[in-house]
Simulated scan of single mutants.
Amino acid sequence: MSTSSPDVTSSVSGSLPRQRRTYSIGELARMFEVTPRTIRFYEQEGLLAPERRGQTRVYHEKDRVRLKLTLRGKRLGFSLAEIREVIEMYDAMPDGNARQLKRLLEILGEKRANMERQLEDIRLMQRELDDVESRAREVLDRLARQGA
């Protein structure tokens, strides 16, 4: 789609009006290497709100940024509710404020603590696997010596 429509506000120099970049669902899907179905799902969950022109979805820069934040949040292990909360905080106050930043830091701290617990669980499992493997090798060596 890649259409541009003039913005009502003019550039700082006062010359030509700025152009607003829009995206089709296919363009965003290719840009972020996701399926259109994924984008529609995030729209259904209230994370994206494209403009509608008939049956066509028209995504603006705000939607592109929200999709980028959503995908980054998912990679970091955020739930959709957590992603929505962070995005809505920033929508409410575009310049950010102390309350928003404190909440974001709380969420990040919770994620970090959870990852540390998961890492410790993985280390414990590795030690248990090492122990089982070592015992199995000892038994196998003993059986091999007995059979020889």
Rank of each mutant, 00 (worst) to 15 (best):
R52I: 03
D91W: 08
P36G: 07
R72K: 15
P94N: 06
M115F: 12
L69M: 15
L16V: 15
L80K: 07
L76W: 05
K68T: 08
D141K: 14
R57E: 07
T35D: 03
F32L: 03
M31H: 11
S5M: 13
L69E: 09
D7C: 13
L105C: 10
R103S: 08
M93R: 14
V86H: 06
A49P: 02
Q146I: 11
R66E: 06
L28W: 00
M93F: 12
D121N: 08
G77R: 01
A29F: 00
V8L: 14
F78E: 03
I122C: 04
G26L: 00
N97P: 06
A136M: 08
R75T: 14
K68L: 09
R142E: 14
R75G: 14
P17A: 15
L140N: 09
G54H: 03
S2Y: 00
L105R: 15
D131V: 03
Q55F: 06
L129K: 06
G109W: 01
R103G: 09
R99M: 07
M93D: 15
E82F: 05
G147C: 09
E88K: 12
L47V: 12
L16A: 15
R53S: 15
S10D: 11
E33L: 07
K74D: 02
T56A: 15
L76D: 05
Y59W: 02
L124H: 02
G77P: 09
L124E: 07
E106G: 06
D141F: 12
N97F: 00
D63F: 07
T56W: 05
D63H: 06
E116W: 03
R52K: 15
V65Y: 11
G14Y: 05
A92H: 12
E43H: 13
I122R: 04
L140T: 12
A29I: 00
S10I: 13
R117Y: 05
E45T: 08
M89R: 06
S79P: 02
L108M: 09
G54C: 07
L69G: 06
L47F: 10
R103V: 12
F32Q: 02
D121R: 11
L76Y: 06
Q126H: 05
N114L: 14
M1Q: 04
V58P: 02
R20C: 06
R137T: 05
L16F: 09
G147D: 09
Y42G: 02
E43A: 10
V86F: 10
L124Q: 04
E27C: 00
E138V: 11
R127F: 05
M1G: 12
N97M: 02
R99V: 11
P50K: 08
D141V: 09
I83T: 11
A29P: 01
D63L: 06
I87W: 08
E116P: 00
G26P: 00
L28C: 03
M115S: 07
V8R: 15
I122V: 13
I25A: 01
V139M: 11
R145S: 10
G109P: 04
A81S: 13
N97K: 04
G54Y: 03
N114Y: 04
G73I: 06
S4I: 10
E133M: 07
R84K: 14
E110W: 01
V65W: 07
E128K: 03
L104C: 14
L47S: 01
D91L: 12
Y59M: 04
Y23Q: 02
L16H: 11
I25Y: 01
L104Y: 10
R37A: 13
T3G: 13
G109S: 14
